Simulated scan of single mutants.
Amino acid sequence: MPLRVTFVAAARSSSLLAERFEDDRPLDLAGWEALQHAAGDLLSLAAADLRYCSPTPRSRSTGDALGYQPLMQLALRDCDMGRWRGLTLGEAMAREPRLVDAWLADPRSTLHGGESLLTFIGRVGGWLDTRPGQEGGRIVAVAEPSVIRAALVYALKAPPAAYWNIDVGPLSTTTLAGWAGRWHLHLGGAPVQPSPV
């Protein structure tokens, strides 16, 4: 059986319109309430063989609140947005409209002084491909939606432009099954049940 990596999208720290590049704010009240509501469906993932999270406060808080006791992984950090860090897309567009347009159109662009989309996707994919695990092992990783989108583009060998067409909602789960270089998106099925103790 292949290794199964289930990504859990971190609970929200702001409304969709107020999302910021490399947002380091903690969970907001709505995020905590949604987390309490979804916990029953996500607690069973704590039985995974390995549990990780991205270094953002909201990812760590989500993983801790679900009892995962996740190990922080720097490779699961959000894309380095350089001088746009902390800005919303609208704010970056108001300051540098031509540069934002060029960045959105070219996955190799580093016009913001940070990391290109291609580099970001490769970094997250590299993390995915180096996961230890035995055949049939299970991993859970709490991460920012952007990280999960990058993992999906990498795993499905999709063109980088597909990144902009993937929506990942707070507290949603996405499972990839396989091994280095051969990942498959797993949809549906019964929720992962904890192993007998």
Rank of each mutant, 00 (worst) to 15 (best):
100 V>P: 10
96 E>C: 02
99 L>Y: 01
90 G>W: 11
65 A>W: 06
72 M>A: 15
61 S>V: 00
101 D>M: 02
89 L>Y: 09
30 A>T: 10
68 Y>K: 00
54 S>V: 09
70 P>S: 11
110 T>N: 06
79 C>D: 00
37 H>W: 09
46 A>E: 13
42 L>M: 07
64 D>K: 07
95 R>G: 04
44 S>P: 00
98 R>D: 10
39 A>P: 07
53 C>N: 09
77 R>T: 06
59 S>Y: 03
98 R>T: 03
86 G>H: 10
70 P>T: 09
57 P>R: 12
78 D>L: 03
40 G>W: 00
43 L>V: 10
54 S>T: 05
100 V>H: 12
69 Q>T: 11
52 Y>A: 10
29 L>A: 15
63 G>M: 09
33 E>T: 07
70 P>D: 09
66 L>I: 09
94 A>C: 12
91 E>K: 01
55 P>A: 00
63 G>F: 10
82 G>H: 02
91 E>R: 07
47 A>E: 05
71 L>K: 13
31 G>H: 06
83 R>H: 14
72 M>H: 10
83 R>A: 14
69 Q>Y: 13
53 C>T: 14
87 L>T: 08
65 A>P: 02
47 A>Y: 01
50 L>M: 13
68 Y>M: 12
49 D>P: 11
62 T>Q: 05
74 L>M: 04
107 P>M: 00
70 P>V: 07
87 L>P: 09
101 D>E: 08
84 W>I: 11
97 P>Q: 04
85 R>C: 09
62 T>W: 03
40 G>K: 01
51 R>H: 14
74 L>I: 04
84 W>C: 11
45 L>F: 07
27 L>R: 06
85 R>V: 05
85 R>H: 07
41 D>P: 03
102 A>E: 15
104 L>C: 05
82 G>Q: 04
69 Q>V: 08
62 T>C: 11
55 P>E: 02
93 M>W: 14
52 Y>C: 02
50 L>F: 15
97 P>T: 01
95 R>A: 13
99 L>S: 10
47 A>H: 12
80 D>S: 13
94 A>P: 11
93 M>C: 12
87 L>W: 14
73 Q>V: 14
74 L>N: 08
35 L>W: 06
108 R>V: 05
40 G>F: 01
